[in-house]
Simulated scan of single mutants.
Amino acid sequence: MTEHTLSEAEYDAITDAAAHWCMRLHAVDCTDAERLAFKQWHDADPLHAFEYQAMLEIWAVADHLPRVEAAPSPAPIPRPRSRWSRLAVAAAVLVLGVPLAAYTGWHLGWVANSYERFEADANVRHITLGDGSQVELNLGSELVFANYKNERRVTLKKGEAFFDVSHDTQHPFVVRAGQGQVRVTGTRFNVWMYQDQVRVTLVEGSVWVTSNQALAGNGSQLSPGMQASYKAGDYQPQIREVAPNDSSLAWRNGKLVLDNLALSDALPLINRYLEHPVMLADNSTGALRIGGIYNLNEVKNLVPSLPKVLPVYLTQNKDGNPVLNSIGQRPSN
């Protein structure tokens, strides 16, 4: 997959479209056909959704923007400020100048001045973000980088990434993964994500990890050699020290290392690289242990070989996913 950094004209065109849809969807005469066209535009590219959300935030805050008043009359008549007057102010901001809206949004910290999307398909990929930070993307991973006035923001859409963050105390570096986030100013760390599970491993520096973005102050600080894990619904991340022989960063060398793990713990690591994730038939199957070192590009060949190394057999569920079943002990004579 290739990187695409938008030109100023391309970015402006998307911003214009976001402003247009923001106005039309707030209009009383907006039709069902327009709403369908908006949904198709919105879902066509993550940046479309990103810019539309920014426009909604500008629209919502328009009531707080400075108002241009005529010369004061000797006896002004107070009038209640209605919802429609607030929407009119927001509409004026959008109609009279999208650049003004973007400029206002930038200075209020809501709109990014640059946007980059990166993907890694069949190979580990090394990239440089717009702020100079270095990132290694694992196979099948995707992230978005946006530069705001008050912070640099990465959204890890899927997969895994190792970050070597360019130091900037005035502009914190935030990685959003799952329902939580990691906040730093400059450091080296790894973020692994599979479905709603996230694991953050710190190599150098210090990071603040929260399991819920809405509770940004309710997290934990990591020191080098520590790891934080969380999943959807967790109030706090779980913290542990990384063992000296920890192999969670072996992917940077193209390897998946399974160090005598229970299948229930190993499958999320394996499934990250599979088109159809492997399921467990029951808890007894999940308790079986597996070890070995595998090349990342060959993980797909691991599943058919499991019955050769473990007391299991493979079936398939109604969704087409392979299912591991343990072979029960035969009764003794």
Rank of each mutant, 00 (worst) to 15 (best):
L94S: 09
L94R: 03
V95H: 08
G97M: 09
G97Q: 07
G97K: 06
V98N: 06
V98W: 03
P99H: 06
P99Q: 06
P99F: 05
P99E: 04
A101W: 02
A101T: 04
A102H: 11
A102L: 11
Y103T: 07
Y103K: 14
T104E: 02
G105E: 02
W106L: 08
H107A: 09
L108P: 00
L108F: 04
L108H: 09
G109L: 10
G109V: 05
G109Y: 09
W110I: 10
W110A: 08
V111Y: 03
S114C: 13
S114E: 09
Y115S: 01
Y115F: 11
E116C: 12
E116Q: 15
E116K: 10
E116I: 00
R117N: 02
R117H: 03
R117M: 10
F118M: 10
F118A: 09
F118L: 04
E119A: 15
E119C: 13
A120V: 02
A120S: 15
A120W: 05
A120G: 05
A120D: 00
D121I: 06
A122Q: 11
N123E: 13
R125E: 04
H126D: 14
H126P: 05
I127H: 08
I127V: 15
I127F: 07
T128S: 11
T128N: 07
T128P: 00
